Simulated scan of single mutants.
Amino acid sequence: MADKPEISGAANNQRILVVEDNDLNRKLFCDVLRAGGYVVEPVADGAEVLAVARRFAPDLAIMDIQLPGISGIDLIAALKADTALADMPVLAVTAYAGKGDEDRIRAAGAQDYLSKPVSIGPFMAAVRRLLPATG
């Protein structure tokens, strides 16, 4: 066996795309996920999401909804319309939490939704729920 310490919910190299334009949030999400054993690809620019996702082939996408120049809801719909990415689960994370927003986000194809500010425990629980078990 490896000398690596066992991390609760260790990911066995599962890949997560983190789409977040806020530098501090993106760094926090990536640091927490890497500490959990995940391989992470950060994306700050919504215009790059589809190209990066096709290249990186993530097991999960974490999607900010309020991005400059493009809606995260539109990006979720675009990911779901791409045959290579359609089965990838999406966790939407946003401060944009008005009445009906969660319904619109889920209708676009997100499997789960967290509103900001995000606590690490619920964030990691949502990630583990959405990723297939490895073993």
Rank of each mutant, 00 (worst) to 15 (best):
K116I: 10
V127H: 08
A95I: 12
R15E: 09
R129G: 06
V52E: 12
D112V: 07
L130K: 02
V127M: 04
A2P: 09
A2F: 07
D59P: 03
D45K: 09
L33P: 06
A126Y: 04
D64I: 04
E41D: 08
N12F: 10
A86L: 08
E20T: 06
A53W: 03
Q14M: 04
V39W: 04
D112H: 10
R128V: 08
D21L: 11
L130R: 00
R54E: 15
D103M: 14
A2C: 11
S71C: 15
G98L: 05
D103L: 14
F56A: 01
S71I: 14
M63W: 15
A81I: 05
L67W: 13
K80L: 00
I73Q: 04
E48Q: 12
M124F: 06
A108P: 00
K116F: 11
G135F: 13
Q111M: 09
E102I: 10
S71W: 15
A10E: 12
Q14V: 02
G100H: 07
I76F: 15
R128E: 06
P42W: 03
I65E: 02
R128A: 11
R128D: 04
G9Q: 08
L75Y: 03
V32G: 02
L79H: 01
R15L: 07
L131V: 02
G98C: 02
P42R: 02
F56H: 01
N25P: 06
N25H: 08
S115A: 13
V39G: 06
R106N: 00
G72M: 01
L67T: 03
R26C: 10
V18C: 00
K27F: 13
D112I: 08
M124G: 01
R128N: 09
R106Q: 00
I76R: 03
D112L: 10
A86K: 09
A133N: 05
N12P: 07
I70K: 12
A81N: 11
G109H: 01
A86Q: 13
G46D: 09
K116Y: 15
P117M: 14
D101T: 11
M63S: 12
G69C: 13
V49P: 00
L114G: 06
F29I: 07
G100W: 05
A47R: 11
D103K: 15
N22S: 08
A77H: 03
D87S: 15
D64A: 05
D103P: 11
A92R: 13
A81R: 12
D87A: 14
G72L: 01
L130V: 03
P68R: 12
C30F: 02
S119N: 15
A107Q: 07
V49N: 01
L28E: 08
G36V: 01
V49A: 02
G98M: 07
R34L: 10
A125L: 13
R54H: 15
A44N: 07
A107E: 11
A47M: 08
A107F: 03
R26T: 06
P58Y: 01
A95M: 13
V93Y: 12
D59I: 04
D112W: 08
A77M: 03
L85N: 01
R106A: 00
G109R: 01
I16L: 05
Y113W: 07
N12A: 11
A78R: 14
A126L: 02
D45P: 06
R15N: 06
P122F: 05
E41Y: 02
